[in-house]
Simulated scan of single mutants.
Amino acid sequence: MAMRSTPTGRQLRLGAELRKLRERAGLTSTQAAQLLGIKQNQVSNMEAGRHGVSPDRLRTIACHYDCSDKPLVEALAAMTPDRKRGWWEDYREILPTGMLDLAELEHHATRLRTAVTVHIPGLFQTTDYAREIFRQAVPELPPPDVEHRVSFRVKRQTVLFRDPPTPHQVIVHEAALRMKFGGPRVTRDQLRYLLEMNEREHVAIHVIPFDARIFPGSGQSIYYAEGPVPQLDTVNLDQSHGPVFLDAEAQLNKYRVLLNRMEAAALTPEESQKFIHNVVKDL
């Protein structure tokens, strides 16, 4: 397979998982190369996502690394096909790479979980609401860049409408519901859209009201994408300088617990539906 100059986030993750398998086996890259009958730099390039690997080759590597976790091996094998052009590739060299990696992550996720305190989650934003969010970027974005980001965000929502749709749990603080981005009309339309989405079978929206007695975590936005096996889950933290992706086992466990605690502190989807209706009436 040809060398890649710019591996995608998914390809980088596959390489990182291969490195984890090797390290769990107690092998150096040189020892792994000897077992596989290849050069050491080929092992390094595979682990850096610069060189692809076939499904059969990956299964052979896992065997040499004494990995008996068949579900994990098969999940990794499913990640091996070389880059298939996803719709997000149309935005390459237009938008930051991290945004493309996020769309690719969502596309392959088996379930999504979001917790927000200030903004409505991106996959649930209306175009007017999203446009107002991007207009607040620092430094200020030129109008064409704002529109590129808005269209990209709307296209990401495909995962909620495809067949089958990706299940999505949303935990939103009351503060995010009451922020009037774009004014009362934009906010009202946004909340009505949120109510509409909460009626879908694969969507569960939970509101944490101001009068909740606890609020787990620091208040930052958390986006959790579940993979085909728990080891391939990914956490995305939305930072001002761009998205940050976490996949270390300790971090995954931490954010699973944190989201579970937030869910326990929040209203049920049915209670949340009534709550959001009341917020709309207040506008």
Score class of each variant (00 low, 15 high):
Met3Glu: 13
Arg4Tyr: 12
Thr6Pro: 00
Gly9Cys: 10
Leu12Asp: 00
Leu14Gln: 09
Gly15Lys: 09
Glu17Asn: 10
Leu18Trp: 07
Arg19Cys: 14
Arg19Gln: 15
Leu35Trp: 00
Gln40Asn: 08
Val43Asn: 05
Ser44Trp: 04
Asn45Lys: 15
Glu47Arg: 12
His51Ala: 11
Gly52Asp: 11
Gly52Phe: 01
Asp56Phe: 02
Leu58Gln: 01
Arg59Asp: 02
Thr60Glu: 15
Tyr65Thr: 00
Leu72Tyr: 07
Val73Pro: 01
Ala77Lys: 01
Ala77Gly: 04
Met79Asp: 06
Pro81Tyr: 08
Trp88Gln: 07
Asp90Val: 09
Tyr91Arg: 14
Pro96Phe: 01
Thr97Arg: 15
Glu104Leu: 15
His107Leu: 10
His107Trp: 11
His108Lys: 14
Ala109Pro: 13
Thr110Arg: 12
Arg111His: 12
Arg111Ser: 10
Leu112Asp: 03
Ala115Asn: 04
His119Ala: 12
Ile120Ala: 03
Gln125Ile: 09
Thr127Leu: 12
Glu132Lys: 10
Ile133Ala: 06
Ile133Trp: 00
Ile133Lys: 05
Glu140Asn: 05
His148Gln: 15
Arg153Ile: 12
Arg153Val: 11
Lys155Ser: 13
Pro164Leu: 14
Thr166Phe: 01
Thr166Gly: 06
Thr166Ile: 15
Ile171Tyr: 03
Ile171Arg: 02
Leu177Tyr: 03
Met179Leu: 13
Phe181Val: 11
Pro184Lys: 03
Asp189Lys: 08
Met197Cys: 14
Ile205Val: 15
Asp211Glu: 14
Ile214Ala: 13
Gln220Leu: 12
Tyr224His: 10
Glu226Leu: 03
Glu226Cys: 10
Glu226His: 11
Glu226Phe: 01
Gly227Thr: 04
Pro228Ile: 00
Leu232Phe: 04
Asp233Asn: 15
Asn236Tyr: 14
Asp238His: 06
Gly242Val: 10
Gly242Arg: 06
Asp247Lys: 03
Ala248Ile: 00
Ala248His: 14
Arg261Tyr: 09
Met262Lys: 03
Glu263Gly: 05
Ala264Ser: 11
Pro269Cys: 09
Glu271Cys: 05
Lys274Val: 11
Lys274Met: 07
Phe275Lys: 00
Leu283Pro: 00
